[in-house]
Amino acid sequence: MNNERKTHRIVLFSLFASLTVVSTLLFRLPIPYAQGYLNMGDGVVLLAALIMGPMAGFWVGSIGSALADLIAGYAIYIPFTFLIKGAEGFLAGWLYFKTKNIWLSVLLSGVWMATGYILAEWFLFGLPAAIAAFPMNLLQGIVGAGVAIILFRILGPIFRNKFHL
């Protein structure tokens, strides 16, 4: 990989991580009876994974989402978010590049995210709180998947043709 291509990838990683922070913090709705909030950050994480692959999905999900938790005052979630959202992005990118099935890739990744958070919240707050938060986390995963599919249909060809990723 030449230096110009490496620079493009680093810039895109940074762009997507920044967009993850912004879309997480700007478009958020508190989740009733839970500690978190519904946001659009997952859509950006999944989009990055679909466009640039599993490692981009991992780093965009990990760094962008963890920074959003830090800025929003949810520091207790940072280590969990780093791993859960990173794995969500990695899984989406890996599944898409293996199967070319966008629906399978983003929906399974969204289900993984909700499952990861039920485990994290069980550890942090107990099983009843984790169960109460699960439906909204699952909804967040599904909404993020839908956002990613729409954005990928629009932006995917632009990135592939212009940056040859």
Results as ranks from 00 to 15, higher is better:
S109C: 09
A34G: 13
T81K: 02
S105Y: 07
G61Y: 03
S109K: 01
P135I: 04
M55T: 13
A132I: 11
P54R: 11
V106P: 05
K98P: 06
N3D: 12
F82S: 08
V44L: 14
L29R: 10
K98W: 09
L107R: 01
G86F: 06
T7M: 11
F125T: 08
T20I: 05
G73R: 09
Y77T: 08
I102Y: 10
P32F: 11
G57S: 00
P32A: 15
A129L: 10
V11N: 00
L91W: 04
A114L: 08
R5C: 01
Q35V: 04
L25W: 03
S18Q: 00
A87N: 02
L47F: 11
V111N: 02
V111L: 15
L38T: 05
T115P: 04
L67R: 02
K6E: 06
G89D: 06
G36Q: 09
S105D: 00
K85D: 02
V22S: 08
Y117T: 02
L70I: 14
E4S: 12
Y74N: 15
I51A: 09
M113S: 06
N101L: 09
F134G: 07
L83S: 09
A68P: 14
G116K: 03
L127G: 11
F90N: 03
M1T: 12
A48W: 13
N2G: 15
I10M: 11
I10A: 09
T24I: 01
L70M: 14
S23F: 15
F27I: 13
F90L: 13
G61M: 01
A49Y: 07
F97L: 11
N39P: 08
L124T: 01
T24L: 03
G73A: 04
I76G: 15
L107M: 11
A114T: 06
R5M: 05
F123W: 15
M40S: 14
L67S: 12
G73S: 10
T7S: 07
G41T: 06
G93L: 08
L91K: 04
I102V: 15
A68K: 09
Y117M: 08
G89R: 01
G41D: 05
S62N: 01
G36P: 08
S105A: 14
D69W: 03
F123M: 15
A132P: 02
F90S: 02
W122A: 15
